[in-house]
Simulated assay, not measured.
Amino acid sequence: MKKIITLFAFVSFLAISGCSSSDDFDEDDDTYPYAFEITDNLGRVADNEYNIRSTFRFEINENLRDDETVLIYRLVDLIDSNTPIWQLIPRTIYFSNGEELDYDYDFSKVDFVITARGTYNLLDTPGYINNQTFRIVLIPSYLASSMDTSNYVEVMNTLKLSENKIKKIKL
């Protein structure tokens, strides 16, 4: 009897461990996770506020799910042509004169807005609003909670997303 219970427990364990959830991350799925890049000028909303506003286009609408996390990174510098420095937003930049610049974003299933707001007129520092490059990464929320999302390289490695899978989008 003890052997039968042990055998039953073992078979049950194998059956349960063989099951998969629809939430499992499938690295062979071309549509998910998903990343794209935009480079553009932020448009004026007010003297101290500029933004980029766009809808998710193309196949992106199909990818955005209810359990989605959207991460947005801003290109802040290049060490060399192969080594960009990406910074997760929201982010506040503090200047030595006491002024501040905040990058933030919001999103829905159909659109996103990336905003730069300052405690000063942002036209005084056009390098923070003109020709800005952002990477938008759509990932399952359960993955976002299990990694350091501020580390762009870790996120991309975990998601197995290489540079050739980043789609460049024109707004």
Score class of each variant (00 low, 15 high):
Lys2Asn: 14
Lys2Trp: 11
Lys2Pro: 05
Leu7Pro: 02
Leu7Val: 13
Phe8Tyr: 13
Phe8Ile: 15
Ala9Gln: 09
Phe10Trp: 08
Phe13Gly: 10
Ile16Leu: 14
Cys19Thr: 13
Ser20Ile: 09
Ser20Asp: 06
Ser20Phe: 11
Asp23Gly: 04
Asp23Pro: 00
Asp29Lys: 08
Asp30Thr: 13
Tyr32Asn: 08
Pro33Asn: 04
Tyr34Asp: 09
Ala35Val: 12
Phe36His: 10
Thr39Phe: 08
Thr39Ser: 15
Asp40Ser: 14
Gly43Pro: 00
Val45Gly: 00
Asn48Met: 04
Glu49Lys: 14
Arg57Leu: 12
Glu59Met: 13
Glu59Val: 12
Asn61Ala: 00
Asn61Pro: 12
Glu62Asp: 13
Leu64Cys: 12
Leu64Asn: 09
Arg65Ile: 09
Asp66Trp: 11
Thr69Leu: 05
Leu75Val: 02
Leu75Lys: 08
Leu78His: 09
Leu78Arg: 11
Asp80Phe: 08
Ser81Val: 14
Asn82Thr: 12
Asn82Lys: 15
Trp86Cys: 03
Thr92Cys: 07
Tyr94Ser: 07
Ser96Arg: 06
Ser96Asn: 11
Asn97Lys: 04
Asn97His: 06
Asn97Phe: 03
Gly98Ala: 01
Glu99Ser: 15
Glu99Trp: 09
Asp104Trp: 06
Asp106Ser: 15
Lys109Tyr: 12
Val113Lys: 11
Val113Thr: 13
Ile114His: 04
Ile114Tyr: 04
Arg117Tyr: 01
Gly118Asn: 01
Thr119Lys: 01
Thr119Ile: 02
Tyr120Asn: 04
Leu122Ala: 01
Pro126Val: 05
Tyr128Asp: 05
Ile129Met: 02
Asn131Gln: 10
Arg135Tyr: 12
Ile136Asn: 02
Ile136Phe: 03
Val137Thr: 12
Pro140Val: 00
Ser141His: 06
Ser141Gln: 08
Tyr142Gly: 09
Leu143Cys: 03
Asp148Val: 07
Val153Thr: 15
Glu154Phe: 14
Val155Glu: 00
Met156Val: 01
Glu163His: 04
Asn164Ser: 15
Asn164Phe: 10
Lys165Cys: 01
Lys168His: 13
Lys170Ile: 14
Lys170Gly: 04
